[in-house]
């Protein structure tokens, strides 16, 4: 099912081991990521979804080595970043690339597309001459479907559309032939009409180059489309609350938060226009609690439709495997759902 493969000895490509990130601010410490365990295998897609502010970007930046975590470890091919020598660090840097959300901010406004692509090629000795760099840059642009490449090489970012810029950003991430691309909301600032084109291009890279992805989005439809065959992790207030195979989680969500997210997705199928879907959508509150004053017990309890007093507001539910009928591995952190599943298991 999963397209990704762990290397022979079962070591994942990248692994987050109980990572934490606490930002110290004037108002107090903000625990943006609170103990996240995740891994990606070679060639695999891991989608990260959740509301804004739930810590997706922070987690991704930790994974890409752009910010050291304040707790926990990041392992690349089984080696902890903090223990790496400089040679290994270079391998990691080249192996994991980050694509930012905003294509208007992520390209240097005063450098041409060619200059942007040639710099890493020359610096890392992948291109020995200007001509060589030019040819390789052409090939990269073709990979991201910017054709004919010669038309784009001498352009400045402000001469490109949003979709074209994002393709250039992806081409730049590809210069060092990474084994993992961490893409943070890479399509959310693009128009619907060009979004799919970019997603298709990224899928093509996945199959043709075997690149792994950590793909962040708040759009579940996009997670489903791009993450097919991979895994998905649903985050809430700095924690993973549900984790499993993408299709299974979306078809059969278990955690009340995942269900609420799915029920909130607007659809335009004729039979559902204007329809108000099930009860699960009826969250008890819409406002996300502040990270400065996290609720006791399960942090979702002030909003949760399944909230049970005395249980949910006292004990923090751990993220543990749950035997979902007819499904593969699933991790869920919820007291009530776990009980219900256990009962159903006894009943049958």
């Amino acid at each position: 099912m999963t397209t990704g493969t762990a290397s022979a000895d079962g070591t994942p490509l990248l692994q987050l081991d109980a990572v934490e990130q606490v930002f110290r601010t004037k108002k107090g410490d903000v625990p943006a990521v609170r103990g996240v365990d995740l891994h990606v295998n070679e060639g695999e897609v891991l989608c990260l979804v959740g509301e804004s502010g739930c810590g997706k970007t922070t987690t991704a930046r930790i994974a890409a080595g752009l910010a050291p975590p304040t707790g926990g470890r990041v392992l690349y091919r089984g080696r902890a970043l903090s223990e790496m020598g400089s040679e290994e660090k270079v391998q990691y840097r080249r192996g994991v690339q980050f694509v930012h959300q905003d294509p208007y901010a992520s390209l240097n406004p005063i450098r041409t597309v060619f200059a942007t692509l040639a710099a890493p090629l020359r610096k890392h000795g992948l291109a020995t001459s200007r001509k060589d760099a030019w040819e390789q840059a052409c090939r990269l642009l073709e990979q991201v479907d910017l054709r004919p490449p010669e038309n784009f090489l001498s352009k400045y970012p402000h001469q490109l559309s949003g979709g074209q810029r994002q393709r250039v950003a992806v081409a730049r991430a590809l210069t060092l032939k990474p084994s993992l691309i961490v893409a943070d909301e890479a399509t959310s600032m693009l128009d619907v009409s060009i979004r799919v084109g970019l997603l298709k291009m990224l899928s093509k890279l996945r199959t043709e180059l075997g690149t792994g992805f950590v793909f962040i989005t708040h759009d579940l439809a996009i997670a489903r489309y791009f993450g097919t065959g991979g895994r998905i992790a649903v985050m809430y207030l700095g924690r993973v609350v549900e984790h499993g195979l993408t299709e299974e989680v979306i078809e059969n969500p278990q955690h009340p938060y995942t269900r609420a997210l799915l029920d909130a997705v607007p659809t335009m199928d004729d039979d559902e226009v204007g329809a108000v879907a099930g009860e699960a959508r009826k969250l008890r509150g819409v406002d996300i609690p502040s990270l400065l004053a996290l609720p006791s017990g399960c942090t979702f309890h002030p909003r949760c439709p399944l909230f049970r007093e005395g249980l949910c507001d006292t004990a923090d539910p751990p993220l543990e495997p749950l035997a979902v009928a007819g499904g593969a591995d699933r991790d869920v952190s919820c007291h009530v759902v776990r009980e219900a599943v256990a009962e159903a298991g006894r009943a049958s």
Binding site: S193, V196, G197, L199, Y225, T267, M268
Partner: peptide, 23 residues
Amino acid sequence: SGLMRAVPRVRGGGPGPVSIPGS
């Protein structure tokens, strides 16, 4: 119809999304 086809669906199968080329 192009705009509608460009939106991926969260549930169910059906044909995958198709982008509108050009600008």
